[in-house]
Design a protein around this nucleic acid. Structure first.
Length: 451
RNA sequence: GGUCCGGUGGCAGAGUGGUGAUGCAGCGGACUGCAAAUCCGUGUAUGUGGGUUCGAUUCCCGCCCGGACCUCCA
């Protein structure tokens, strides 16, 4: 078996993955800011990282997977003020929704799910270090990171200081020394959430919470940091600047894994376009496994168009796999080689190629070889697929069991007396009134599946 | 404007310096009472113009088209 290669945003190349500590691989994924329902783009991120974590767990004895919850932020504050409630009351439901929705996609929960509000001491500690090291300064109650103090700044996202300056399209606050300087700590008015700090009552800026939480739970240096590619700048650039300047000699994350954005029916998802797909709503119309599968049908570094047609195809492909598994209900579990799937995933998580391998296993199963079905199930575990029985997937229980039984019995009788007009009529009733397709097998046997 | 990424058959979507995966859809056939599922067979697909090479879809350059990022969006 070859070893794992990952495309590293830091070096812009695909490189072999070498853990800092093979006994404990440490990975961090930028989690949600909790003020609303998760959207389908969040789902891609989590599903892809889930595949990576599952793969790492096969390769290494221990993996520590940290995914944060950002539960203090200006958007949250606005919601709280609008509703006249605390930020805890705003964030509670979205946190639960997020866990439910991601669970419905069969993603494994992180080992540690730290919250920004529970890491204020670490945030303050890092800011103090930055001030001490001359990388941050206080101005009008704010603490700002000084971009000019960090010669490495901009390198990660491939920007020169000039470009950064030219690109600054927001109004530059007067207390900033340079337009590119960003806030580490900002003062809170009494009506806003705040914590006591050496700079007065205030709250953290964006970016600093991830530096604090990854430091606390994974250390100054860790293996993998993931997120959507829109976070490369400014979020991750700033995280790197903060962490590396706070801890001289450290390099923060070794490998940066970024997934591309998602399109919805060919357009970028945005609230103004009205094509903002809320994951919860997608899950009301399609099985979680189909959504998960669809997100795996394109390579993670490729733009993926989330369309109804694509979702329908994903379902059909899963149908085929479940049929292949169903063909061998008594297949004995045993070790089977999964080179095809492993090799695909080891090569920078090539999920489309892994899916092609799944089809090869299905071919084998359909040809009568139960090894195909065993391999399919084993590969499914690695990919987070085939979480239910074939019967549950193909038929489910959303139909009138008693009536369907009665009709199928009538049809058996009709077929026995070769009354095909009647048996075809019953088949039609089953489909049109019960949404059930009946498939005849050898010797009068049959299978049911939902249309 | 700057930086970066991509353009593969009807659609989705991989790989590769040397006869272009995989799935869906289509067409023909086998099987079936008929279907469905399955199996077999099938299709002038690598945006465009140059260059390098014995040979390019793959490497290099130009062009066209599309997309992302450029301070709080995964």
């Amino acid at each position: 078996m070859t070893s794992l290669s990952l495309y590293n945003t830091r070096t812009r190349t695909k490189e072999p993955f070498t853990p800092i500590d093979p006994e404990n691989v440490r990975a961090y994924l930028c989690g949600p800011t909790v003020y609303d329902r998760a959207h389908i783009g969040n789902a891609r991120n989590v599903v892809i990282f889930d595949v990576l974590i599952r793969l790492l767990r096969r390769l290494y004895p221990k993996v520590t997977y940290v995914r944060n919850i950002t539960d203090v932020d200006d958007k949250i504050n606005v919601r709280a003020q609008e509703r006249g409630v605390s930020i805890e009351e705003v964030t509670e439901a979205p946190i639960n929704w997020y866990r439910e929705d991601m669970g419905a996609l069969y993603t494994l929960p992180p080992d540690i799910e730290p919250r920004a509000t529970e890491h204020i001491p670490e945030i303050i500690a890092i800011i103090e270090k930055l001030i001490l090291n001359g990388h941050a300064y206080e101005a009008e109650g704010h603490v700002l990171f000084s971009v000019a103090s960090d010669p490495q700044y901009g390198k990660f996202s491939g920007r020169t200081p000039d470009e950064l300056l030219a690109g600054a399209r927001v109004d530059v606050a007067p207390y900033k020394r340079e337009a590119g300087d960003f806030v580490l700590w900002k003062p809170s008015t009494p009506d806003l959430p705040g914590w006591e700090s050496p700079w007065g009552r205030g709250r953290p800026g964006w970016h600093i919470e991830c530096s604090a939480m990854s430091w606390r739970h994974l250390g100054e240096n860790f293996d993998i940091h993931g997120g959507g590619d829109d976070l490369i700048f400014p979020h991750h650039e700033n995280e790197i600047a903060q962490s590396c300047c706070a801890f001289p000699g450290s390099h923060f994350a070794n490998v940066w894994v970024h997934n591309r954005m998602l399109l919805v029916n060919g357009e970028k998802m945005s609230k103004s376009l009205g094509n903002f797909l809320v994951l919860h709503e997608v899950l009301e119309k399609a099985p979680g496994e189909a959504v998960r599968f669809m997100l795996m049908r394109a390579h993670y570094r490729q733009t993926l168009d989330f369309s109804d047609a694509g979702l329908a195809e994903a379902r059909k492909e899963l149908d085929r796999f479940y049929r292949a598994i169903q063909l061998h209900p008594n297949a004995r579990e045993r070790k089977v080689p999964l080179h095809l799937v492993f090799d695909a995933l080891l090569d920078d998580l090539n999920t489309p190629q892994a899916i092609a391998a799944l089809h090869k296993y299905a071919d084998l199963a359909f040809a009568g070889n139960e090894v195909g079905a065993v391999a399919l199930k084993a590969a499914g575990e690695l990919l987070g697929l085939f979480n239910m029985s074939p019967e549950e997937w193909l038929l489910g229980d959303g139909f009138d069991q008693v009536e369907v039984d009665r009709l199928t019995n009538l049809r058996i009788a009709a077929r026995l007396r070769k009354d095909f007009v009647e048996s075809d009529r019953i088949r039609d009733v089953l489909l049109k009134e019960h949404g059930v397709i009946i498939e005849d097998g050898p010797g009068g046997s049959f299978k049911l599946r939902k249309a």
